[in-house]
Amino acid sequence: MTQQTSQPTSERTAHQAPALRTYYLIFLALMLLLALTVAVSFVDLGAFNELIALAIAAVKAVLVILFFMHVRYSSRLTWVFAAAGFVWLLIMVGWTFSDYLSRGWMR
């Protein structure tokens, strides 16, 4: 292995990452959202329970992806890669449910 006195790369990578304060704020937001989603689960809102629970989970996931995983600060290509899996998952969900919802299997 070639040993070499390297230039510090922190300058190059530092601008791609958020400030420390951002991490703590995001963490705080995640905790609040967790408290909220647990609280909502004790209230009977009918079909809205599912909707709210999944919406809060989605917001939490997006926060983690954008800030903890640095996508907010990354190239467009990273955005595409990060989104691809979820887009394809939506295809699977949409097309599969299209059968079940129109078949009458779910009573």
Binding site: T37, V38, S41, E50, L54, K60, A61
Partner: peptide, 17 residues
């Protein structure tokens, strides 16, 4: 792995009403 759990938690534990 954390994100998976973020979805697992409401999916399994919270949808009870």
């Amino acid at each position: 792995v954390d994100i998976v759990w973020i979805f697992l938690f409401p999916t399994l534990y919270l949808l009870r009403q």
